[in-house]
Design a protein around this nucleic acid. Structure first.
Length: 473
DNA sequence: CCTGGAGTTGTCCTA
DNA sequence: TTAGGACAACTCCAG
């Protein structure tokens, strides 16, 4: 008795899943496993909102697999141990997965491949979650890109475009006896006391079907206005695909080709092309962030630009920090964003920049404090995008915002929420501030802006200092 | 090696 | 009222 083992990680889908396809094509029965690993060294524990999403995504995935005749095995613990145990229990002779890009994850996968080799097991890994493998995108002089525009240009100008999505297997054969699976509920991924995710399902349909519904909705009525509309938080002009992408419920290959197809169906009009290109460039930012994470594995904890290692971040005042986290800063645009985050596990991109700029520049709090809060509260918290974006706002990142760029949340609200729709949606009390006791601003915007400019100016005397990328053999 | 164009997302002051 | 320049130059990257 033999079988093939498919280890799913950030790729909770049955469509365009090369590891699953290859395992099915091998012809032996297939065991599909997901491992919750909160113990292996270096692996960052999942945030609360991410866990909520994971619970529902695994439920949706299990349903998808059932419809194909497959089964989903859940295990908890150190992934290398679990894999070895499962191989023993199932008699599996081949192992399949789609690649990951974080350093601890890559090291773990490499060690498991070593083990497989020594044990005469087949082990196959696939490209599934990035359009362009990070080690293949290099400047003319062979170094990784650190500026987005030339990076993306070189990606989209490649002689061969990203591959077509892989077909969904027609059916999956499970072995006669399946290994034991944990009960998903026993993982306690859902919040209780209080259940802060109560309103999340109003906004999100978790799972592969929900991901494709979101993409269709985007093509049906959002992409037409995307390039301009994406800046207006009250509008629903963005795709809202980020949390689906986070767990790989949909792949960038599927999005790339669906967008391409949509563009052709629409007759390649200049306007559609502009919007489509802008949308794909956002996918490009995700690629760029992963490219940075691959070459600079400490992106979430270490300043990309070492000048910032000496930056005098204040010790965060717990009350001030809490006011920011809970949306009680008295700055309406910041508070609306932080409350959108609290209520829905999401925040519109423009408001993320405003709220982040406020924390870093007005409050002079270390970007890592904000990064950690978003990591815990965003349903789309992504190891690459979250870190790269916070560093971008701080000015410590690759291709970062210049230090003198300080968002003014009042002007931003005037400009991007002129009818106050977004503010009213998340700050009911703001409409009647006298009745509700909406807080006074915790800080003077002009004064704190000038303080930030002074502090950041001290960096300008020192040359930028970027650590060399880690070398991969 | 040299050259030159370009660089996600802003704000404020001045003429 | 509005448009343009200052803010800080500096680095990245292609040719």
């Amino acid at each position: 008795m033999t079988c093939s083992l498919v280890w799913l990680r950030d790729d909770l889908r049955v469509a365009d899943n090369p590891a699953l396809v290859a395992a099915v094509d091998r012809g032996e029965p297939v065991v599909v496993v997901f491992i919750l690993d909160e113990v292996s060294p270096g692996i960052r524990p999942l945030g609360g909102a991410t866990k909520w999403w994971l619970h529902h995504s695994l439920t949706a995935l299990r349903d998808k697999l059932h419809r194909l005749g497959g089964e989903l095995i859940l295990r908890q613990g150190a992934a290398p141990d679990i894999i070895r145990t499962l191989i023993r229990e199932t008699g599996a002779t081949a192992l399949y997965w789609n690649r990951r890009y974080g350093k601890p994850e890559r090291d773990m996968d490499a060690s498991i491949k070593e083990y497989a080799k020594a044990s005469r097991l087949e082990a196959h890994s696939f490209q599934a979650n990035l359009l362009f493998e990070p080690w293949t995108v290099r400047t003319g002089s062979g170094t990784p890109y650190t500026v987005f525009t030339p990076f993306w240009k070189s990606c989209i100008n490649r002689p061969t475009p990203p591959r077509l999505p892989a077909p969904t297997p027609e059916s999956i054969t499970s072995p006669a006896t399946l290994p034991e699976s944990d009960d998903l509920d026993s993982w306690n991924l859902l919040p209780t006391n209080p259940n802060w995710a109560l309103a999340f399902p109003v906004r999100w349909t978790v799972g592969e079907n929900g991901a494709h519904a979101a993409l269709e909705r985007f093509f049906a009525g959002r992409i037409d206005r995307y390039a301009k509309g994406r800046d207006f938080p009250a509008e629903y002009s963005t795709s809202e695909l980020s949390p689906h992408l986070r767990w790989g419920e949909i792949s960038p290959f599927q999005i790339w080709h669906a967008t391409d197809e949509f563009r052709r169906e629409q007759g390649n009009s200049a306007e559609i092309s502009t919007n489509a290109a802008k949308f794909l460039a956002e996918l490009g930012w995700r690629e760029f962030s992963y490219h940075l994470l691959y070459h600079w594995p400490d992106l979430a904890t270490v300043n990309f630009d070492a000048r910032f290692n000496h930056f005098p971040w204040g010790e965060p005042d717990p009350e001030i920090l809490e006011a920011w986290q809970q949306g009680r800063t008295g700055i309406p645009m910041v508070d609306a964003g932080m409350r959108e985050l609290w209520q829905t596990g999401y925040m519109h991109n423009r408001v993320r920049m405003i709220a982040a700029s406020f924390l870093i520049k007005n409050l002079l709090i270390d970007w890592r404090v904000g990064e950690a809060w978003f990591w815990d509260t965003l349903v789309d918290a992504d190891p690459a995008s979250n870190a790269a974006s916070w560093q971008w706002v701080a000015g410590s990142g690759a291709d970062a915002a210049p230090y003198f760029r300080v968002f003014n949340p009042v002007l931003q609200a005037d400009k991007f929420d002129p009818k106050r729709e977004y503010l009213h949606r998340y700050l009911g009390e703001y409409e009647h501030p006298m009745l509700s006791g909406y807080p006074e601003p915790i800080i003077d915007l002009l004064e704190s802006r000038n303080r930030a400019l002074e502090a950041f100016k001290t960096l300008a005397d020192v040359p930028r200092s970027i650590a060399p990328p880690t070398v991969d053999l």
